[in-house]
């Protein structure tokens, strides 16, 4: 184990570049997959004819496939049928597609858990079904959703490491390049990136617990 060599200024800088890209890709994908996931989840909950079954079909399809397959597919298979995008875009798109499907299920579950009596009360007091959804169901449902949503965001951040198979220069990819320099760098580098991933994710889970306490 060669901590001094592994953590030379150049190597640390290079690893931080990777960490930065990991955070950027995770951040953009979290925002996108949250927006898409909420929309799809609400559509599924609202049981809109045609649209809801189609969403059900897509969500089930994506949720039951490995993310690694989706990443590889978006990067290398879609271009064969004319859908082309750059490396980072492809990684974000793949992560977003997969995580949005997971989030849609969380949103639908959270909405379903809202007490039916409240919906009926709101409707009978003259609110439209959209108003009921917007003012009654969504705010309450969101409360149920915070913990699973945050753990999904944590998953997403961890899952960015899978983009290393399409050579996205994120943390895991850069870590492998540094490990490749010398055998004795392997364990120090693995330890360092474990600490980095853990720190961000643990922070997220602490924030989530705070939120839970506040809303409960």
């Amino acid at each position: 184990m060669d901590f001094a060599g592994a953590f030379s200024a150049a190597n640390l800088g290079f690893l931080m570049d990777g960490f930065y890209l990991t955070l950027i890709v995770a951040f953009v994908s979290i925002i996108l997959s949250f927006v898409i996931g909420v929309i799809v989840g609400v559509i599924r909950y609202a049981e809109v004819p045609v649209l809801s079954p189609v969403m059900f079909f897509l969500v089930e399809l994506i949720r039951n496939l490995p993310l690694l397959l989706i990443i590889f597919f978006v990067r290398f298979a879609l271009p064969e049928v004319g859908i082309k995008m750059g490396l980072t875009t492809a990684a974000i798109a793949a992560l977003t597609i997969f995580e949005a499907a997971m989030i849609a299920e969380i949103v639908r579950g959270g909405l379903t858990a809202v007490d039916k009596g409240q919906i009926e009360a709101a409707r009978s007091s003259g609110l439209s079904s959209f108003q009921t959804l917007w003012h009654i169901v969504l705010p309450q449902g969101l409360r149920h959703m915070v913990p699973p949503l945050v753990s999904q965001f944590i998953s997403l951040l961890k899952d960015t490491s899978l983009a290393t198979i399409v050579a996205l220069p994120e943390l895991m990819h850069n870590a492998k390049i540094v490990m490749g320099q010398k055998e004795s760098f392997t364990i120090p580098v693995l330890l360092l990136i474990a600490v980095l991933y853990f720190a961000v994710n643990y922070l997220l889970s602490v924030v989530s617990r705070r939120l839970e306490h506040k809303t409960a």
Binding site: I154, L162, M172, T186, I187, L190, Y202
Partner: peptide
């Protein structure tokens, strides 16, 4: 639980792949 849940699966696999060989 906290440690394992907060690091990527791929990293866990690498630990068992490179660790024992070291």
């Amino acid at each position: 639980v906290e440690f394992v849940r907060n690091i990527p699966l791929l990293l866990v696999v690498y630990i068992f792949y490179y660790g024992p060989s070291a």
